[in-house]
Design a protein around this nucleic acid. Structure first.
Length: 484
RNA sequence: GGCGGUAUCGUCUAGGGGACUAGGACGGAGCCCUCUCAAGGCUCAAACACGGGUUCGAAUCCCGUUACCGCUACCA
């Protein structure tokens, strides 16, 4: 920590080897919230030193995921691979200062040593044999072009730090082996690259998953050997699946893009993610991004892994759906509607007021925007399917149902005014006239209009549909019933 | 195996020595509202892993045990 008063600099450092995972998104979110609250800087670094696994597509997926969530980063994106020269310089510096040494052991030899240790039921730790090589022997091998890796010589003692979420964590150095920092091909290993980059980027707080706890003592040693004070560390808990294991594809969707496709709002996703491992205290749950920025605190970070519960995510989404305005929701629903082929852009533009009203009608009882798409279909001209269960339940007696629908069609066709009140009055009167409960009219009518047994209030449905479409839906239903 | 981490309702969590008969939320059960479904309101079931300390007093502090998780690569 160079200057405790300087604004913090934090980073999110994913490796581009897949999609943006919800766990990664959550780590990014915490860093982002911290930076935004403190007036600090949030940086993005792509850890692409593993050429074999890194792809441009995954890098794009990470950008798109973060953008969708609204987690904008400051400054230029850093690509770790571009720091190669500096990584090598740092490794050489450590070699020169004697903090590191060359190791000529081949992977095969190492493998053999591991096997032997396993046979003895010992835990393997590199025995430093190459550190014992005489200087002229080392020179001879280097001159002969023998490949070598660079290993960091872990000093005696203990490495400890005050973690922002765990308090003090300490490792006896004897348990840390002399780890490799530079491969025989001259490329850096993770721990070196991370420390070199974090120093270079001026990172003051490293907030990351707690699966990095055991890397931390190695990194602290590197900071010191490189002549730098280590930053603060905050190790946040993992996110697990419902079975308590690390969240993976087996648990269903783990990519934030999957939730985007399923119609989760970014605000809800971020809100839900924030609550996995963080609590503002009290009973606060549904929050906007702004509220979270204001409330965020390292003190509220949880130590325990959280289990990803999609049920609660959906509930959260429902909450955000009901708080958001039709206007705010419009762009997201529009693209979903277009994708589903339910409406055309022209249709939505030409009846904009009506469209906004429809959104208000639907969003109350939807949990995702995909729910809304499903519920929106009947309000557009395309044909609808009659849900078999709804038919079974509400149109049990086909002839009678058909009769009711015809009566309704005639009744509302001649209505002088087309308002919720006039429609309700007319339909209730019809029920009375036929000597049946109002529900006996409303329910079959709902199936006729929407094909479903679930919809907004029936009069609102009629209004939103308008006389023309409603008549068409009724005729279709009557035709369906008479044909059967 | 070694090392490290964690442990409050099924799940997310509040709690930071007395206010705890352990609070809220999701999910579950039920009731109310009601043309259906949501939303909303109300009610119920549901937890301090175990064992020792420390203390007048422990969910809260300490130590063990157990369970779970992570790391243990020339991956990140």
């Amino acid at each position: 920590m160079a200057d405790p008063l300087a604004p913090p600099r934090v980073r999110f450092a994913p490796s581009p080897t897949g999609y943006l995972h919800v766990g990664g998104a959550r780590t990014a979110l915490f860093n982002w919230l911290y930076a935004r609250q403190t007036g600090g800087t949030f940086l993005l670094r792509i850890e692409d030193t593993d050429k074999a696994r890194s792809t441009d597509e995954s890098e794009r997926a990470i950008f798109e995921g973060l953008e969708w969530l609204g987690l904008n980063w400051d400054e230029q994106v850093v690509h770790q691979a571009l720091g190669l020269a500096r990584h090598q310089r740092d490794a050489n510096f450590l070699l020169e200062t004697g903090a590191a040494y060359r190791c000529f052991c081949t992977p095969a030899e190492l493998e053999q040593l591991r096997k032997e240790a396993a046979a003895r039921k010992d835990s393997f730790k590199y025995d430093r044999r190459c550190d014992l090589l005489a200087p002229d022997e080392i020179k001879r091998r280097v001159d002969a072009g023998t490949p070598f890796v660079v290993r960091f010589r872990v000093p005696h003692g203990e490495t400890a730090w005050e973690d922002a979420v765990h308090e003090r964590i300490a490792f006896p150095n004897k348990d840390i082996e002399d780890f490799v920092i530079l491969r025989s091909d001259g490329t850096p290993i993770y721990n070196l690259a991370v420390v070199s980059d974090d120093i270079d980027m001026g990172i003051t707080l490293v907030m990351r998953g707690d699966d990095h706890i055991s890397n931390t003592p190695k990194q602290i040693q590197l900071y010191r050997a490189l002549g730098n004070e280590p930053p603060r560390f905050a190790h946040v808990p993992m996110i697990h699946g419902m079975d308590g294991k690390k969240l993976s594809k087996r648990h269903g969707a783990t990519a934030v893009a999957d939730y985007q496709k399923e119609g989760i709002l970014p605000g809800a996703m971020v809100n839900f993610l924030a609550l996995m491992g963080w609590s503002p205290g009290g009973d606060r749950e549904v929050m906007s991004l702004e509220e979270m920025i204001a409330l965020f605190s390292l003190d509220g970070l949880q130590k325990k892994a959280a289990i990803f519960d999609t049920k609660k995510l959906e509930w959260m989404n429902g909450q955000h759906l009901s708080r958001i305005t039709a206007m705010q929701l419009e762009p997201r629903l529009t693209s979903a509607l277009l994708d589903a082929g339910i409406a055309s852009r022209e249709m939505l533009i030409s009846r904009h007021e009506w469209y906004l009203g429809l959104i208000d009608l639907l969003k109350v009882r939807a949990r995702t925007v995909l729910d809304m798409v499903r519920q929106a279909a009947p309000f557009f001209p395309g044909p609808i399917a009659f849900d078999p269960e709804a038919v079974e339940k509400q149109w049990k007696d086909r002839a009678a149902s058909s009769g009711i629908l015809e009566a309704v069609r005639n009744e509302i066709a001649n209505l002088p005014s087309w308002t919720p009140e006039s429609l309700e009055a007319a339909l209730r009167a019809l029920a009375e006239q036929r000597g049946v409960a109002a529900g006996k009219i409303f329910h079959p009518l709902r199936v006729a209009l929407t094909g479903l047994s679930v919809s907004p209030g029936i009069f609102e449905v009629l209004i939103a549909m308008g006389p023309e479409l409603a008549a068409k839906r009724l005729n279709d239903a009557i035709g369906f019933l008479n044909a059967a």
